[in-house]
């Protein structure tokens, strides 16, 4: 019987080790060998001590050498493994998270700007990105040119004057927020590019941003492809799902995939069915992306056929029935956190 250890291949006879073929005593080589996939088939039986054999067959001289060599090899191997886990989908996951972070920050900033700038020019009526762009371009309302649509409002504003020191401050603040919006657009564009390259089928079915979000939530394209599509369907509806599992609500019909226009723009009684069809196709698409990587346009055609047949079969809203579910007593808003 042969077994594989980190330092060599051992042949085991009836009365112990009969042959020992040590590997080269080179840290890099040993680290690569450590990560080989077929060790499971040749693992030492339980109770077999690989250290004693390493010393007996002369691979190392003593315990100290065994310890320090094994340590160096393992550290090298673990570092290799970690650098290999940094796959393209890790980039996408971080990009999606960054997008959410920027959204949080930028909302807070633009709201502050709206309050602050409102002292000076309350009639402006802009918010979020357009407000931020306006302020960082003009600063004081006195700088708005005559051909600008806001010119009239600016000249007749009831707001207080903006001293030039404050104008500098508020302009700087707005231009920082502007940079964040720019950065957001760049990240979004890069997600679109990477998704088309890495997951063309998922992108085709549900768009790059929802696809990227699904990948981010599951922790990778490969993980997404292994999930049942019922999970894909409700992913992102965690609160609703757990409420349902505790028997206090009907099951959620859609999670993050609600944002797909097919679901979102359909009447409410078709959404659950369409979400289910869409989730099924997302699962298939993810598997195509992982295992073949080629674009299969017919999957989109099939989805559209399916959606049309759902729409044809359910043209009218059903009469609402009492929802099923153990202990469910009508709508339970609040109370359950």
């Amino acid at each position: 019987m042969k077994i594989i250890t980190w330092y060599g291949i051992l042949t085991i006879g009836d009365d112990g080790v009969t042959e020992c073929e040590p590997f080269n005593k080179d840290v890099d080589e040993l680290a690569e060998l450590l990560l080989q996939k077929d060790v499971v088939a040749y693992f030492p039986g339980s109770g077999f001590d690989i250290r004693t054999v390493a010393i007996e067959c002369g691979f190392v001289e003593n315990d100290e050498e065994y310890n320090s060599l094994l340590r160096d090899v393992s550290i090298r191997a673990a570092k290799l493994q970690i650098s290999r886990t940094n796959t393209p989908d890790m980039q996408i996951i971080q990009a999606v998270e960054a997008l959410d972070d920027i959204d949080d920050v930028v909302n807070v900033l633009s709201e502050r700007l709206s309050e602050w700038y409102g002292l000076h020019f309350p009639e402006l009526g802009l918010s979020s990105e357009s407000l931020v762009r306006f302020v960082s371009e003009f600063g004081s309302r006195n700088n708005v040119p005559a051909e600008h649509p806001m010119f009239e409002k600016a000249t007749s504003s009831m707001g207080s004057e903006l001293p030039s020191a404050d104008e500098e401050l508020i302009k700087g603040f707005a231009s920082n927020a502007c940079d964040l919006y720019d950065s957001r657009h760049n990240i979004e564009a890069s997600i679109v590019r990477n998704m088309e390259k890495m997951a063309p089928n998922v992108t085709l079915i549900t768009g790059s941003l929802i696809g990227a979000r699904l990948i981010s939530m599951t922790g990778g394209l490969a993980r997404l492809s292994q999930l049942p599509s019922s999970t894909v369907q409700v992913m992102g509806a965690n609160r609703a799902l757990f409420k349902h599992l505790r028997g206090r609500a009907p099951s959620p019909k859609h999670g993050i995939i609600f944002n797909n226009p097919l679901v979102k723009n359909s009447p409410w009684w078709q959404r659950g069915k369409i979400a289910r069809a869409l989730a099924a196709k997302i699962s298939l698409a993810a598997r195509m992306d992982v295992y073949s990587g080629e674009l299969h346009p017919e999957i989109k055609v099939n989805l559209e056929k399916k959606v049309n047949s759902i729409k044809a079969a359910n043209p009218k809203p059903p009469i609402k029935q009492k929802p099923a579910g153990k202990g469910y007593k009508g709508k339970n808003k609040g109370g359950e956190r």
């Binding site: 094994l70 393992s74 673990a78």
Partner: peptide, 27 residues
């Protein structure tokens, strides 16, 4: 941490599958 210590052997593996690191760990 391992880089600063001489007696830690790091293993990136699933603890529920000991066969995957049986070629590294002794008794």
């Amino acid at each position: 941490l391992c880089d600063t210590r001489s007696n830690i052997v790091p293993i990136l593996a699933d603890a529920s599958r000991p066969k995957l690191y049986a070629h590294i760990v002794e008794q």
